[in-house]
Design a binder for these strands. Structure first.
Lengths: 114, 114
DNA sequence: TGACTATATAACTAAATAGTAATATAGTCA
DNA sequence: TGACTATATTACTATTTAGTTATATAGTCA
């Protein structure tokens, strides 16, 4: 009985792990790049390989992970597989982070004497 | 000249790495737990060690990382160091992810036949 | 001063994972 | 059917990092 803080609705550990896992998916530059490319329209694996310059196996693995977590969807068409954004929330997340980063960098710049 | 997609403002690779690094900080359950505890008010390292049940060195390392990335701030008071939320944006991020997760889980539950 | 406490840091181990090369799968077309 | 193409998967290597133990730092108080 010595705690004075309001104990805000504590998320159970399993929930925290789920949330952390989602952030982890977004914690790779290559996956962010793929999402960014898909933002302007669906693309085949081959197109993404060309546009990123990454290896085919690597791109495929990243796309599989993005699809497993529901961030992108897949659509087969003959030999090709088209990937597309399934959960646009990822862009909201990116915008928030970018805004925060910009604020911090601007502050640092000012501190240096702009 | 065979590309029909609108090439949405491409972020340079360095920017993507910065954003990814931010997500990576949030990609650990223990750090999310610490942030969640701090949401209801500042706390000393010792208090966080007690409340999480984690090791002191471990908590200290996580806090150092959170502070380096500007998500929390520190304030010394005698022997104690108080940590507090410095960028509330992290909670906006968490709320977005939680909402998305809930939607997905609800959908899965329905698919199973609720 | 010296004993004590809170926090930080260093060195280490174990686990996770991004990237790659090779291979498997599945669809197309002659 | 068999040659060909796009994608997925497997096995591997190298890197990163969470957690731990031991130690260092810095502040308090007698």
């Amino acid at each position: 009985m010595a705690k004075s803080k309001t104990t805000a609705a504590v998320m159970p550990p399993e929930a925290l792990e789920l949330v952390a896992a989602r952030f982890k998916v977004l914690a790779e530059p290559m996956r962010l790049r793929l999402l960014q490319l898909l933002e302007s329209g669906e693309r085949t694996v081959g197109e993404l390989v060309t546009e990123t310059g990454a290896g085919q196996a690597n791109v495929s693995k990243h796309l599989t992970l993005l699809a497993e977590t529901g961030m992108v969807g897949r659509r087969k068409e003959g030999l090709n597989v088209y990937y597309f954004i399934a959960d646009p929330m990822v862009f909201d997340l990116c915008k928030l982070v970018c805004g925060s980063l910009q604020k911090q960098l601007a502050q640092k710049a000012k501190a240096f004497g702009g």
